[in-house]
Design a protein around this nucleic acid. Structure first.
Lengths: 344, 344
DNA sequence: CTGAAAGCGCTTACAG
DNA sequence: CTGAAAGCGCTTACAG
């Protein structure tokens, strides 16, 4: 009935007076088509504004030419940057990129891996940073199953998952560099707010923090090590509790924050308490969000080049290599860290 | 050959000793299946961890149960919020949501509408805010074509596109409220940085700005009206040029920014010039980004409830209604606006 | 309540 | 260089 709106490969073939095989061939830019028929077919395609159904293509062929990426959420620009890098690279390589907010994988009785398996993708990138270790068992099983369906690349350092191709940030290395940097500015009471308590690996932030202190032959004060979620509110609360628990002379002169959001929160809390920034408290973040240069004082942080990470993850996925590689980062010095007043 | 990894509806049917029709029925939770066979089939499905291919489903059935949303980019949290709202609502309604960054629609010789048509979606949401009017002709043609393939809902006020179901913010109304608010604080030299020069409709920010001034019986000073892109850098530059062009006594005492990013830039530029914030310059933004409470001073802005907007767009798309509706907003008072010093 | 068969719109051997 | 035919994995009338 709806013949008018029918626009399939059959319609093109009929109108061009060739077989659908031939249409398919010019569609895919195959060699063996005479210039003449090719021209003819292309004319019909253009006039009818025909586009092959990607869904039928996926059904018929073996490849769907679409990839997926699983991210906790997009509201944190950190993840939006990873997505953007991955998306752009996928397109450049001729793939589409499907986004799966992690939340959806967390639903009640849905098996996350299977949810993904439903969609036949040519590969999937999964961000496992900040994944509660409690979920580890389930995650392992899910991944193993998903792996049957499609290649997987992981983002984030989870040692138990190192049998998968992985690209990750060495958070320990970053934390250690943060300590060294602050030590070079004369700080000795350096706090760290961030990390995950149930996380257990050599790439943990707190491992690097401890290593940094050790290298500087500074005492390790456990009161200065606090864990919190990656939000500004959590940062405010964590710093507040730390300061409350300490006599003023023992307050840290510098704090290393989990990320820029937490750093933002620390700045706010410090200001609320009448501390001068950065004179009374140096703050260093991580992620280099778009707003970080506009905080007061502008935030010293680590640029993780997240877009590049996303792009690299796509390359890794497409290459099929079973590599495990560290991503780059670099310190961005701004105004939120200064020489420690006590050391002047 | 790869029989081992085959896991289709046929495998399930064979193993359960029923027809694929029956398997399909229990898969879709259809009524007419005896409890016994249903149980039997479900057991096999569970044991084999079978999941129907969504791509085959899309091919066979008429609906793909997946929607799409076209957004300029995700790096601006404003859009990430819209996406998140739309995504969550889509899932709640049993649909998947595909994201198409606008950039990809902007490619060289790809017809955007057709690119979307390739993927058979059950509907698409397109954000047309800030679309250069220069592209209007092409856009109209593209949309007309796309419309043949799937229902469309637009986000953003573009009068020439009002024949489509649309949900939009009345930027003029917001700008007018901003003016009134600043007037109520005693400001008279109120600048506006934002809007689009080639935009032409009643919902333009500058229309509301002008209307607000008129209502307050304040002179309209064209030097106070500046256009710029929606980035912090653009905001800095725009304010800088405005101040450069004016003798100091004529500097505005308040500025209405296009969005929070621009507001951030204005704050930075004002601070650079030694202005005290907010005493010497009140700044009001728009969007209520996650970082806005953490700027110094914390930013007074408009909360656009973008997540709700995204969810509403999905509802509109699914309902099939041809409505045109305004989205809500509300003023969020913080510290970046204060009573005008001159009026004290 | 259950099943055989057609069909969704393509791609891919296989012939010619 | 070109085409007839099978098949991808489902859903959906249509029979029974």
């Amino acid at each position: 009935m709806k013949k008018a709106s029918s626009n399939t490969i059959y319609d093109i073939a009929a109108e061009a007076g060739v077989s659908i095989t031939t249409v398919s061939r010019v569609l895919r830019g195959e060699e063996k088509v005479s210039p003449h028929t090719k021209e003819k077919v292309e004319a019909v395609i253009a006039r009818r504004n025909y586009r092959p159904s990607s869904i039928a293509r996926g059904m018929a062929g073996q490849a769907t030419h679409s990839l997926g990426i699983v991210l906790p959420k997009l509201l944190n620009p950190y993840y939006a940057m990873i997505f953007t890098g991955a998306y752009d690279q996928a397109r450049k390589m001729g793939y589409s990129m499907n986004l799966f907010p992690w939340k959806s994988l967390d639903g009640q009785n849905t098996n996350p891996a299977l949810m993904l398996a439903e969609r036949r993708l040519d590969g999937i990138i999964i961000n496992v940073e900040y994944l509660p270790m409690a979920q580890n068992e389930k995650l392992l099983a899910d991944l193993r199953e998903l792996r049957q369906y499609m290649p997987i690349v992981l983002i984030g350092a989870v040692p138990s998952l190192f049998s998968y191709p992985t690209i990750f940030y060495d958070m320990a290395g970053i934390a250690k560099e943060a300590v060294s940097y602050l030590v070079s500015l004369g700080h000795e009471r350096i706090a760290m707010i961030g990390g995950m308590e149930d996380d257990h690996d050599e790439f943990r932030r707190d491992m690097g923090y401890l290593a940094g202190l050790k290298e500087a032959r500074l005492p390790c004060v456990s009161t200065y090590l606090s864990y919190c979620a990656g939000t500004a509110e959590a940062g405010e609360k964590a710093l507040s509790e730390m300061l409350d628990s300490l006599q003023r002379p023992y307050w840290p002169t510098a704090v290393i924050a989990l990320n820029d959001m937490v750093a933002m929160g620390c700045q706010a809390e410090a200001r609320r308490r009448g501390l001068r920034l950065p004179e009374d408290l140096s703050v260093i973040g991580c992620d280099n969000l778009f707003c970080s240069p506009y905080l007061t004082p502008s935030l010293t942080t680590f640029d993780l080049e997240q877009q590049q990470l996303g792009a690299r993850a796509v390359d890794l996925l497409l290459s099929g290599d079973a590599l495990r590689e560290k991503a780059d980062w670099k310190l961005v010095e701004r105004d939120s860290c200064c020489r420690c007043a006590e050391s002047r």
